[in-house]
Design a protein around this nucleic acid. Sequence first.
DNA 1: TTGGGTGCAAACGGTTTGCAAGTAC
DNA 2: GTACTTGCAAACCGTTTGCACCCAA
Lengths: 149, 149
Amino acid sequence: MEKIIDSIKNKLRENDLRLTSQRQAILQILLEYRHAHLSVEELYNIAHEHYPELGIATVYRTLDTFVELGIVHKMEFGDKGARYELNVDDGQHYHHHLFCISCGTIIEFNDDLLEKLEERIINESKFLIKDHSLRFYGLCYECQQKGIE
Amino acid sequence: MEKIIDSIKNKLRENDLRLTSQRQAILQILLEYRHAHLSVEELYNIAHEHYPELGIATVYRTLDTFVELGIVHKMEFGDKGARYELNVDDGQHYHHHLFCISCGTIIEFNDDLLEKLEERIINESKFLIKDHSLRFYGLCYECQQKGIE
DNA sequence: TTGGGTGCAAACGGTTTGCAAGTAC
DNA sequence: GTACTTGCAAACCGTTTGCACCCAA
């Protein structure tokens, strides 16, 4: 745990960025809600309880900074707000997501299958892959039980 | 070709929707630019040349309607506008996309690998999959040649 | 001390909506 | 004629930005 915070402090220092109380607070929340895939507004509301002066612009700017540093992963949604999560495992074997279209639950799952596919793409299209995103949309078990279709 | 238009007319009729000149014009453009992955604004600008009175709200509403009918596929982007394309093959073997992060080119590729993965997800998580989205982000061959990293 | 960081409020840009007028059926 | 559609402009909402003040190093 302490390792994560230290490594982040180092990354900030290396980039001439300052460890402000706002950045610490946001980091704290990202650690605490590690599997919650927080939206900006959710994070802002949580932070607000202990840090009422914090502005939402700062949340946006801080998250952008963290994404740039590779500390945080941003998940884009169509027009609805983006969601963020800590980038725990150094970019290796990044997990993917199942999005429940009824209740909004996000379930994580791991997969190695994509590597074969990446090789094929590189060979067939000469496309240089830097990142990928795989999502499945559907209904989580709970919503199915409720009879939602 | 005519088949597509007829099947769409039928779908409209079945749903008590009217075949207005605006819907026809938009359909025409979607057919003509079938592999262009048009944004709303691009489509609106093209339509405007021959149909200056057309409002952008109508473009949005028409595309929504077409998506609902399964005629059109919507690709969401983070905050940047969505893109649309005709849903030619009846939902079978839908192709995926390579997004060039430098020039914005979108390259299509087909894949069947995902079916195995879907099976695994259904077994392991009881999640009912309705749709999926697989994207690779990187550099197309032309941008690599320009020395962009 | 000083340049990066913050809070505020206004601006932005894609998308949606209310409403009166238009038109396919 | 009736209900679905449309055009317009205003509203929306997540996000960004300009600017004066603040504070970490």
